[in-house]
């Protein structure tokens, strides 16, 4: 990541207190560099999901603002991937990916090319007519990613997308995500509990404190080419160690 990368969006002093008095976020200011993967890493309950929801517009900050460099996002500019694949169980793969287009009143014909491209991207050719319960967990997650990408969003928000998958599938999807990101050249904000996943995927890691969530460190990662071998290098181990240390320090009273 070059120091000159301009931010796609910036959060300015975002705090969020829920009506029941729970304060989830405390003064979060963060730059999300365009065309890169930024990971939010922090203990459970520190407000990572809340921050993603505020950025996506699903929730509102109590105080603070989100600034978008290229103007406020339109419908389809933001792709959201949840921890569960979150598919319509009664609809097949094609129809599930068609949903965002359908909501925008795009005809099936007009949407077809974008949908087929997205299906190609996640390697699900031939599964267009399958229903979610006929797919494995990893495949369902690919459908979810394809749906998020099909509208050609400028930012992809991913809330622990691979947390429920086994490790082998997770590794595979990590590599797929890196490949897809290069192919569509979008910005990714990724949430995870896993230090290893964060270090492997990210260009930048924002470490958060326990609730109320604050940003306690921002670290840029530059480990070069991500391949399976990378996980075995000492640089990788060192980065993981540093990040873990930051997390533990943040946890200390």
């Amino acid at each position: 990541m070059t120091p000159t990368s301009k931010p796609l969006l910036t959060t300015n002093n975002i705090s969020r207190t829920f009506t029941d008095g729970t304060q989830a976020l405390d003064n979060v200011s963060l730059n999300i560099p365009e065309g890169h993967i930024t990971t939010l890493l922090g203990p459970s309950g520190c407000g990572k999901s809340t921050l993603l929801r505020i950025i996506s517009g699903l929730d509102d900050a109590s105080t603070g603002t989100t600034n978008w460099q290229n103007g406020a996002p339109q419908s389809g500019d933001i792709g959201f991937v949840f921890q569960d694949a979150t598919l319509l169980p009664w609809a097949n793969v094609w129809d599930n990916i068609y949903l965002p287009f359908r909501i925008q009143n795009t005809s099936r014909n007009d949407a077809n090319e974008a949908i087929e491209n997205a299906i190609n991207l996640v390697d699900l050719n031939g599964f267009e007519n399958h229903h979610p319960n006929q797919l494995s967990g990893g495949m369902r997650m690919r459908v979810s990613i394809a749906r998020a990408l099909a509208t050609n969003p400028s930012v992809l928000l991913m809330d622990e997308p691979f947390g429920a998958l086994d490790e082998m599938t997770r590794f595979r999807l990590n590599d797929d995500l890196l490949r897809i990101k290069e192919a569509v050249n979008c910005t990714v904000i990724f949430v995870t509990h896993s230090v290893y996943e964060a270090v492997y995927l990210s260009d930048k890691i924002a470490v958060m404190s326990p609730r109320p969530g604050r940003i306690i460190a921002e670290k840029e990662i530059d480990l070069g080419n991500r391949t399976a071998v990378l996980r075995a290098t000492s640089e990788f181990a060192q980065s993981c160690g540093e990040i873990s240390l930051l997390l533990t320090e943040g946890d200390a009273p």
């Binding site: 929801r53 996506s56 517009g57 699903l58 419908s75 389809g76 933001i78 959201f80 949840f82 569960d84 979150t86 319509l88 949903l99 965002p100 359908r102 909501i103 925008q104 509208t151």
Partner: peptide, 16 residues
């Protein structure tokens, strides 16, 4: 609830 959020994210109308 996540599907509800998804519909909201894409600006779905009440009817949709």
């Amino acid at each position: 609830p996540n599907l509800r959020d998804l519909f909201r994210l894409y600006g779905a109308s009440r009817w949709q």
